[in-house]
Design a protein around this nucleic acid. Structure first.
Length: 435
RNA sequence: GGGGGCGUAGCUCAGCAGGUUAGAGCGCUGCCCUGUCACGGCAGAGGUCGCGGGUUCGAGUCCCGUCGCUCCCGCCA
């Protein structure tokens, strides 16, 4: 007999069905037994009259434990007394596919770290499933847009012979008789694709950061969304692409899950207006000062409290959740970010803030070999190990730029969660390698 | 790496200025209950109070160390 999803039961009233799922609750009374079965589509009540003495079926129901995996055969009956959709399944056969231990190690209100220990139980909660449905929709919408715009999808190697950026946050691994590093970014390789003439490229893939970061928005392995575009005139072209792409993604998420997200997580999905507000770092600092926010920390960057404050100011003044902050000084940007011709101390770079958190870093890249070399030396970068990268720009490289984008940070903000661990299937952090 | 908070039953927590057998709710086990729907009722089991030292007549409670968790900062996506 074919399996019926619980969401389809209302179309099968009077029919015999086979449903498969988990025991949500057991209410074993004197005269009647109720089971609530949960599958990926919903909850359903299953009922069995108790016989005197109890039948084998009654005994089997009594022996069930919560979260056991079961297969139930019965007849669908409409009954107004039932709160769950006004229908129930009259139990005829019960097969216990896997009996769960009686006592579960976590509850609905368990602490995050404990829930991480038992992630597969944590994820059985229906509202957690929505997280990954939204992720699926968001990624699909991203690809939809890229595909329409004729982007090429990349799969770059995650083993590297040398650092792709700073070098301070690399995981070192054994690689036969030498050492290799886990890629902390596909940065160099997506630029290589530009030098290779692929035009516009993207990659959705894992990146590894050996930072001992203990915050709600960092992990040591996460899914990075990377984009690189050739033949641009400036970083403005990159921002223009990103805002259209993101607006498309959020529109798709809203139309598919907007109501569910609001109901489940109390977070409204807002499709952003175009263009997004843009503000230079200089102007951002000025805005913050005007509004009485003392921007502490380094003078040439925004610390997290300042980013939150800036987002709040822009939201209040312009009614927009997104803010591009542009033109960061060379001191806080990598050597390959292109510098402004008229103000060489500033880069043609940007960050994208959403609801107070950093979602993206992007820039126009320096594609002129001599200039790139000079900037590397200026930043004190040892060019020896990255000569292969510099070589990309020796045989005709188009002007280009792109951005890196944190997928889990998007999801966290989208679903009003306060921690990336909630929206990561399996979190990896400095002290978390299991399960 | 720096700073704050926390670590007591399976889970979530309470625990007085240090003082006799360490508590609650949920869960679990057993019994009872004509349809429940977070079912309800009664009873019961379950804890080296993270670990190691120290102070004290006496420490879950104070001190030191250590491990773990958590948040913020740094770093970044």
């Amino acid at each position: 007999m074919k399996r019926t999803l619980i969401s389809e039961l209302s179309e099968k009233i009077g029919e015999r069905v086979r449903i498969r799922g988990w025991v949500h609750t057991v209410r074993d009374q004197k005269r009647v037994q109720f089971l609530v079965i949960r599958d990926e589509s919903g909850l359903a009540q299953v009922v069995a009259a108790k016989e005197e003495p109890p039948s084998e079926l009654n005994e089997a129901v009594s022996a069930l434990t919560a979260e056991s995996a079961v297969t139930v055969v019965g007849t669908v009956i409409a009954d107004d007394r039932v709160n769950l959709g006004g229908l129930e399944v009259r139990l005829e056969e019960l097969q216990v596919d896997s009996l769960a231990d009686a006592e579960l190690p976590i509850a609905l209100d368990s602490a995050l770290d404990k829930r991480m220990d038992w992630r597969y139980l944590d994820l059985r909660r229906p509202d957690r499933r929505l997280i990954f449905e939204v992720q699926t929709t968001a990624e699909h919408a991203m690809r939809e847009f890229w595909h329409r715009e004729k982007f090429i999808e990349l799969h770059t190697p995650k083993f590297m012979g040398s650092a792709s950026e700073s070098g301070a946050e690399l995981f070192k691994v054994e690689y036969f008789d030498r050492e290799a590093y886990l890629a902390q970014s596909p940065q160099f390789y997506k630029q290589m694709a530009i030098a290779a003439g692929l035009g516009k490229v993207f990659e959705v893939g894992p990146v590894f950061r050996a930072n001992p970061s203990f915050t709600s928005r960092h992990d040591t392995e996460f899914t990075s969304v990377d984009v690189e575009i050739a033949w641009i005139d400036s970083h403005d072209d990159v921002m223009a692409f990103e805002e259209q792409w993101l607006a498309h993604v959020l529109a798709r998420v809203k139309e598919t899950h907007g109501a569910d997200i609001e109901e489940t997580f109390g977070s409204e999905v807002v499709v952003p207006a175009l263009p997004f507000p843009r503000v230079t770092l200089e102007r951002a600092k000025q805005l913050l000062r005007e509004r009485g926010h003392e921007a502490p920390g380094p003078l040439d960057d925004l610390d997290p409290p300042s980013e939150r404050a800036l987002s709040a100011i822009v939201s209040e003044q312009q009614g927009h959740e997104f803010t591009f902050v542009t033109d960061y000084p060379t001191t806080v940007r990598p050597f390959y970010h292109m510098r402004h011709a008229d103000r060489p101390e500033l880069t043609k770079s940007f960050d994208l803030l959403w609801r107070g958190i950093e979602l993206t870093t992007g820039a126009q890249r320096e594609h002129r070999y001599e200039q790139l070399l000079a900037q590397a030396e200026d930043k004190g970068v040892d060019v020896g190990p990255i000569q292969y990268y510099l070589d990309f720009f020796r045989f005709g490289a188009p002007p280009h730029g792109g951005f890196g984008f944190g997928l889990t940070r998007l999801l966290m903000q989208l679903l009003g969660q306060d921690n990336v661990r909630e929206v990561t299937f399996l979190y990896r952090g400095p002290h978390r390698l299991e399960p």
